[in-house]
Simulated scan of single mutants.
Amino acid sequence: MNVLVVGGAGYIGSHCVRQLVEAGHRPVVLDSLVFGHRGAVSPEIPFYEGDLGDPAVVGPILEDEKIDLVMHFAAFAYVGESVTDPLKYYFNNVVATLRLLETMLEKKVMRFVFSSTCATFGIPERMPITEDVSQLPINPYGQTKLDIENALKAIAHAHGMSFAAFRYFNAAGAAEDANIGEAHDPETHLIPLAIDAATGRRPALKVFGNDYPTPDGTCLRDYVHVDDLSRAHIAVFDKLAEPGTGLFYNLGTGTPTSVLEVIQAVEKVSGMKVPHEYAPRRAGDPPALYADSTKAKTELNWEVKYPTIEPIVATAWAWHKTHAVGYDD
């Protein structure tokens, strides 16, 4: 299958490109390189630099590359920035995505796989989070993702486009060969921040809150390896043959890990101490967020290769050892 991976030079997208090749598909990458890295994509993969919301760019790619399915990983994803600059998020995550979908309809490319987020659930009403938990996002980032989920339902009903939306939790880790991995600027994810604190590239790690109603007082989160995420996205392809299909899946290990447990895993894997200090809670941080991925496991035969935090951290550590400043190395 010819697959256009929008945002394919980003963290999750670049890993998915690799998984597509391994699964026998032919990926084509479109990335603006605002946050993506050209070095994350093999020179052998067809690559286009451009905006997902520009039909003059997207339309010819869909035609010339004979695209069968589009995967979308190109959203802006900094929660704090979405609060301070919501228009940036609505223009990219909503307006540009709707233009992408419009161009797909015009070119009769009718299968779409969407990278959504657990942020659509806001502060969830129960744990673990199943697909039917009420979606009440508490920030513009989560709201923009939910807006596209709702638009996809309407487009599927009106035009017969088939789609799958994956709401995943904390993407983590790096490729097993350590050639691609996590390189954000700014970096906000806990595992790379802890690794950088251990190696002295950053100051002491801030732990926001140690008085939560959890076993060690720090927040619990569900860390899922980036390659496990990618495999789920590809496993859904066969489910999208029927016009108008709309599928939603939560992706996580189902095993919550605390901030202190992540720090301990980094220390064990690296052999270094992670200097850290406690800071006040951040507004809007729930005590725990973790997934019930039974639906994905049952319907897609999806199994995680990395069910616990230590092997996930080990892949991240292997990447950061040789890419201290990301792809600039």
Rank of each mutant, 00 (worst) to 15 (best):
Q135E: 15
P128N: 11
A172H: 03
I123Q: 14
S115F: 07
N139Y: 04
A204K: 09
V226C: 11
A174H: 10
H159K: 12
P137V: 05
C219G: 14
C219Q: 11
L220H: 01
P192R: 15
Q135K: 12
C219W: 04
G122Y: 10
I180F: 05
G122P: 09
I195W: 03
A156L: 01
Y168C: 06
Y168I: 03
E102K: 07
E131G: 06
T120V: 15
C118F: 13
A171N: 05
A119G: 11
I138H: 05
T117E: 08
L220N: 04
F169L: 12
L190P: 09
Q143M: 12
M104W: 09
G173N: 00
G181V: 01
P137C: 10
K107N: 14
T188H: 15
L152I: 12
S162G: 02
Y212I: 02
P186R: 10
D132F: 11
L229T: 04
S116G: 07
H225A: 02
A151D: 04
T199K: 02
R231E: 10
D177C: 02
N210V: 14
I138N: 03
G142C: 06
D211N: 09
M110K: 15
N210C: 09
H189Q: 14
R126Q: 10
L205F: 02
L190I: 13
D222T: 01
N179G: 09
G122D: 00
Q143Y: 14
T144P: 00
I148K: 02
N179Q: 15
I155S: 02
P137R: 05
T214V: 07
D222Y: 13
H157T: 13
T130C: 03
N139L: 08
S116F: 02
F166R: 07
Y141N: 00
A172K: 09
L193R: 15
C118D: 12
E149T: 03
I155D: 05
Y141W: 06
H184E: 09
A172E: 08
R167S: 04
A235T: 08
A241Y: 06
K108R: 01
K107V: 08
V224C: 12
R111F: 01
I195G: 04
A235H: 00
R202Q: 12
P124Q: 09
Q143L: 15
P192D: 05
G122T: 00
V207T: 06
A119C: 10
G217R: 13
A183I: 04
Q143I: 03
V224L: 09
